Amino acid sequence: MMGLHNQTIKVFDIGIKAYTSAREIKVGEGPIVSLAKWNDVTVSAVKSGQITVWHSDETKEINALKSGEFLSRMRQDHQSPNMIATGGKENDLQLWDLNKPEEPIFKAKNIKPDMVQLRVPVWVSDMTFLKEPNCIALATRHCHVRMYDHKRQRRPVVNFEWEESPFTSITSVADKSQVVVGTAHGRMGCFDLRMNKPEHPVRIFKSFAGAVRDIVVHPHLPLVFSVALDRFLRVHHLETGKLIHKEYLKSRLNCVLVRDDFEEGDLLPTRGKPKRKWMERKMEMEEEMGYDSSEESCEKVRKIEDDEVW
C-alpha cells in the first residue's frame, strides 16, 4: 500500500506484480504523509492534519492538528496496531487509540526553555515505538532525539542533540534500547537510549552523499536498510557499521520496505562482476583491432573506452 502526492492510495500485489486497487481520498489539504493498516481498517494522514479511519461501511476523521502548522508523520505501533503517534511543525507528539479516536490519550509537553530562557521550537520529523512498554522515541528538525514514557510524564525522559543537522528519520532496533537516526546532511548513527551518555553514538554508518529519507532495521538479521536523496539503497551491518550492499535506483527515494523473510543471500552482488565484464570487453576490442603496443593502437582503445564510459 502506498500513498501518492495527489492523495491517491494504491495497493500493489507482489504476487501478480500489478496494482489491484486505487482510491482518491480527497481529505484536507496537502499530500499524504503516512498510511497504516489495522485489520480491515485503513488509516491515512495528510499534511493538513486530518487522519481518516476508513472502515468498510463508515469513515471517522481525527483532527491531529488543532494547533501547529502542519503534520509531518504518523506512525503505527506494530505491537498494538490500534495505537498511532503523530507529530509535526509546532505540533508535538500525540498518541491516539483508534478504538476511541475522539481525543488523544497522550500529549507531549515541550522541554524547558534553554539557558537564555528562550522557548525551544517544536518540529517533530519522525517517531518510532520502542520495545519497552509505553516508550516512544522521536527525532526533530532541530537536531533533538527524545524518548517519552507516556505512562510516566509528559516531558521526555531522555533528550539530547547530535551535530548541527536536522533529523529526517528514526527507527528502533528490535530487542534493544537502541535507535538509528538519519540526518538531512547524509549522516546516520546508532544510539543507545539507556546509556549514561546517550548522545554518544554507538556507531556511525558512512557512505552517504544526500539526505537520509527512510531507515529500516531488519527484525531478525543485523542489517540496516536506508534510502537517501542521492538515489542509492544502502545495506549496512548493524553491529560493525560496514557497508554490505549499495544499489543505484535512478530516482529520488523516499521510503524503503523490507520483507520479514528477507535473507542476506538475497542481496545481489554489485562488486567484482562489472569489472570482469569490462575486462572481457576490453580484451575483445583489442582482438578486433589487432592490438599491439604502438601508440596509435593504444590511443584507439583509449578513445573507445571513454566513449563507452560516457
Score class of each variant (00 low, 15 high):
R271K: 15
D230E: 11
R259V: 13
L267N: 05
K273V: 15
K277W: 11
R281F: 01
L221G: 01
K273A: 12
H237Y: 04
R213F: 05
S207C: 10
H236W: 02
F232I: 05
K300T: 03
M283A: 15
M279W: 13
G265F: 12
K282H: 01
K250Q: 09
F225C: 04
I215S: 05
D230F: 09
L268D: 11
H236F: 04
H218W: 09
H218P: 07
I304Y: 00
V224F: 03
R259H: 15
Y248I: 01
H245F: 02
C255Y: 10
A228E: 06
S251L: 06
I204L: 08
K300A: 08
F208I: 08
S207E: 14
V216S: 05
G272Y: 06
V202R: 01
I304G: 00
G241K: 00
K303R: 11
P198A: 04
E288N: 11
V202D: 03
E288L: 11
E263F: 07
H236Q: 06
K206W: 09
R213D: 09
R271A: 14
A228M: 02
M289G: 09
E247S: 11
L249T: 01
V235N: 04
K277D: 13
E286C: 04
I215L: 08
F262N: 07
A209H: 13
D230R: 06
E284M: 12
F205G: 03
E247L: 14
I204Q: 05
R252T: 12
E296H: 10
K277Q: 14
E239R: 06
G272D: 06
E284Y: 11
S293L: 10
D261W: 11
L233A: 00
L267W: 05
E286P: 00
V212C: 09
L223V: 05
Y291H: 04
S297T: 08
N254T: 12
L249P: 01
S226T: 10
V256F: 04
S294Y: 07
F232P: 12
A211D: 05
T240V: 08
M285E: 02
D266G: 01
I215W: 06
P219I: 05
A209W: 09
S251P: 00
E286T: 03
R203V: 05
Y248M: 09
S251Y: 04
R271G: 12
Y291G: 00
H237K: 07
G241A: 02
C298M: 14
I304E: 07
I244V: 09
S251A: 08
D306I: 12
R231V: 07
V235I: 08
P198L: 08
S251F: 07
D214G: 03
R276H: 14
E299F: 04
D260Q: 14
E284W: 13
E305D: 05
G272H: 10
H200L: 09
L243D: 01
G241H: 00
D230W: 03
M289I: 12
A209S: 15
E199I: 13
A228V: 01
Y291W: 02
L257C: 09
P219D: 06
V256K: 04
